[in-house]
């Protein structure tokens, strides 16, 4: 009897202590993530598909995210899109204005540290071959926080849909106060310049922005996070 318990305990210890192998990133993505996220570019990128998809596309994740953020967030996910993906399915009329129907929002699954690391590794290999992102476009110049904020709020109206600090700004789009650690600067630049080039039916308008605007807004968003400013 003692021997059986010892064997069972050994098997259990072995199973839990076995590290997740690097090649498991693919299998975790396919088993746990592909139900909601596109890991390869879909043939259909229409408006109808936008209504059907359950989570943001990840087939260009390697062009979009910063790996350290992915590793951390996958273990302790917090909402990035206050009104879900996509907002229209999760809002309803309220007393004074539309409100988020939080009963419909589901928390993102958590991964263990070892799972998060291999999944982040694999996600960083997912890049789109059609040059969605203009690499090296962001010059990295420091932006005056007050000037950046004026453009973000009053002059270009980004704050109508995005928040640049918790509780301030619109709710239909991703919050941007953690975007500096979450997103690659060239992705922010390219997405701001032409959202539909990356996500064809997305509900973000394409603004007429000068090169100076794009540098200023990208810099402001990059600086928002982690006390960089």
């Amino acid at each position: 009897m003692k021997r059986q318990i010892f064997i069972a305990a050994s098997i259990s210890l072995f199973t839990t202590a076995t590290p997740v192998l690097a090649e498991d990133g693919d299998s975790i993505l396919n088993s746990k993530c592909s139900g909601c996220h596109a890991l390869t570019k879909p043939d259909d990128l229409s408006l109808d598909r936008l209504w059907e998809r359950k989570g943001p596309d990840l087939f260009y994740a390697g062009d979009k995210f910063n790996k350290p953020w992915l590793v951390q967030w996958l273990q302790a996910p917090v909402p990035i899109r206050p009104a879900g993906e996509f907002y229209r399915k999760y809002v309803k009329p309220g007393e004074k204005s539309d409100i988020i129907d939080s009963s419909k929002l589901k928390p993102h699954p958590k991964l263990s540290q070892s799972e998060a690391e291999v999944v982040a590794d694999t996600l960083m290999t997912l890049t789109d071959s059609s040059n969605l992102i203009e690499k090296g476009k962001f010059k990295g110049e420091k932006v005056s926080a007050s000037m950046g904020r004026m453009f973000f709020t009053k002059l270009r109206g980004c704050a109508a849909c995005h928040s640049d600090s918790p509780g301030k700004g619109g709710l239909s789009a991703p919050e941007l106060y953690t975007a500096g650690s979450r997103l690659q600067p060239d992705y922010i630049y390219s997405y701001t310049k032409h959202p539909q080039k990356i996500d064809p039916a997305v509900w973000m308008p394409r603004l007429e922005l000068s090169e100076q605007d794009l540098q200023r807004l990208t810099g402001y968003i990059v600086q928002l996070d982690a006390g960089r400013d």
Binding site: Y87, P93, S97, K168, G170, L171
Partner: peptide
């Protein structure tokens, strides 16, 4: 609807933060 509202009445989810 993100600004003009589900009921098309100008009370979208973003409207409370707009100037």
């Amino acid at each position: 609807t993100q600004c003009h509202g589900v009921n098309r009445d100008g009370n979208g989810i973003n409207s409370t933060n707009m100037s």
